[in-house]
Design a protein around this nucleic acid. Structure first.
Length: 442
RNA sequence: GCCGACAUAGCUUAGUUGGUGGAGCGGUGGACUGUUAAUCCACAGGUCGCAGGUUCGAGUCCUGCUGUCGGCGCCA
């Protein structure tokens, strides 16, 4: 890399009183015609550079002081600790503009553009997402996001899970068929995948412990702070495992993510005004578990109108999560409320062996998973019970005809986890280029 | 699919009972040798989302359309 010095290192005092060459972008400027202050940013932080006409000469002074916000520059000078509020600064000896910004078209993401967004997004910021990415808040989010992805990989790999890739073009649905994106496929119809699950189950007898992180697509016209049409899905599948064991991994990975963020990104969390004690609670606490029936009783006890057999929608989840300070599981939903691949409970086949993990603070469901219907007889019965067209699932049934074993898995909404742990208002804040029913650009 | 809001300069917005559309930021020019969202002076920048209607007169009232935002259902 043609870059040796980083602003983060300057700010930590690594280069005090020695010469550095910063390759960076202009964040903000101010000054007079004798002295010019230029705050530079790179991916590691911001630092103020002091440019004195006497020290750099007229030509250099004019050229640097004319550089607009987001011009790229190379600046050479002495890194100096100061008593001023910004800590470190660069006493500039020379420098030049690399990529100028045209005054006829200045950088559009101004303080005023971000002022009313409350940390979230305005239409303007969404339209200029490609430029908004380089602002402080977005950069921080992207760093947190990277750490979340890394933590998920390390959780599974440390437990000898194999990362496994499923196709994104598929012929059948996992969830209800209405939410599939249809794409033309050489004169036929194909769909964008909603989950790797069916394909993961095919590999389960080969790998036994497997996981993935990949985009999933849902053509839901949802307009909420929790939904995207393209989202990142961390999924795992494990052979010879019960619903309880799968849940333990769900709790394990979420707590590991929280712990890793605390260890590696506490500065970023703090800059988003996130309470570190709260994140520590998410990392250190056990997550309570509650059966569906208990949840219904609690809701009915609170006067909420809900019938046994109904799925629990977000309004009801929210009432339940209000009583918990940490994520909690809901298990054993009624069979009628869940799709065919959930395994009926052998102890009471009115229920299925499944779980949802609900995040606190009103963030809602972040994991859905459970034990799979694994014998040929049971899967055929369940498919028939739901009038699911069988053709698309032939291979899925086939897997059960050759040495089926108990197994299960879950899907975790990575963007939802990022949103929750970052304390963001909207899931859009946690992904670089959000896609929803009304937006596919930029 | 359903419900509710909003649309004024590049951005964020003010605009009173309908009577010649203002400001801050950003940009340009100028002043100032240590600024911290620098400050001060000046200049440029507007088919008030689009199409109709009411009216002597519409940014303002009415209708339709488009776009965006928020919420619900569904889910990760």
């Amino acid at each position: 890399m043609g870059k040796e010095y980083w602003i983060g290192d300057v700010n930590s005092g690594l280069h005090d009183d020695s010469e550095v060459e910063l390759k960076a972008w202009v964040h903000r400027t101010r000054g007079t015609n004798k002295i010019w202050f230029m705050v530079l940013r790179d991916s590691t932080g911001n630092v103020q550079c002091v440019i004195k006409r006497d020290a750099v000469g007229d030509e250099c002074f004019e050229s640097l002081s004319n550089a607009l916000i987001e011009s790229s520059v190379i600046i050479r000078g002495i890194a100096s600790p100061t008593d001023r509020q910004h800590g470190h600064e660069i006493q500039v000896t020379s420098g030049e503009v690399v990529g100028p910004v045209n005054p006829d078209r200045p950088f559009p993401i101004t303080e005023s553009a971000m002022a009313e967004s409350d940390g979230g997004e305005t239409e303007f910021l969404l339209d200029h997402r490609h430029l908004y990415l380089r602002t402080g808040r977005m950069t921080t989010m992207l760093k947190l996001r990277s750490t979340v992805f890394g933590a998920i990989h390390s959780y599974f790999r440390d437990l000898d899970f194999i990362e496994y890739q499923a196709p994104n073009f598929v012929s059948g649905a996992v969830e209800g068929g209405s939410t599939l994106f249809e794409v033309p496929y050489f004169g036929r119809k194909a769909y964008l995948t909603q989950s790797w699950q069916l394909y993961a189950e095919a590999a389960m007898p080969a790998l036994e412990r497997l996981y993935t992180m990949a985009p999933s697509f849902r053509a839901e016209k949802s307009r909420t702070r929790r939904h995207l049409t393209e989202f990142w899905h961390a999924e795992m599948e494990i052979a010879w495992a019960s619903n309880t064991e799968v849940m333990e991994h769900g709790e394990g990975v979420v707590r590991h993510i929280a712990r890793t963020l605390l260890d590696e990104r506490s500065d970023e969390l703090t800059s988003l005004e996130r309470d570190l004690d709260l994140i520590a609670q998410y990392a250190d606490s056990e997550y309570p578990r509650m059966r569906y029936d208990e949840a219904i009783e609690i809701l009915q006890g609170k006067g909420v109108e809900v019938q046994w057999g109904q799925d629990l929608d977000y309004s009801k989840e929210k009432i339940l999560t209000a009583d918990f300070d940490v994520p909690h599981f809901l298990t054993h939903y009624p069979r009628v409320a869940k799709p065919f691949y959930h395994r009926p409970d052998p102890d009471d086949p009115k229920y299925v062996l499944c779980h949802d993990l609900l995040a606190p603070e009103g963030y809602g469901e972040i994991i859905g998973g459970g034990e799979r219907t694994w014998s040929e007889g049971e899967i055929l019965e369940r498919i028939e019970e739901e009038n699911t067209p069988m053709e698309a699932y032939e291979f899925y049934i086939d897997v059960r005809r050759f040495g089926g074993v108990p197994h299960g898995g879950f899907g975790l909404g990575v963007d939802r986890v990022c949103t929750w742990l970052a304390g963001a208002e909207h899931i859009r804040e946690a992904i670089p280029f959000p896609r929803d029913s009304r937006r596919v650009t930029p």
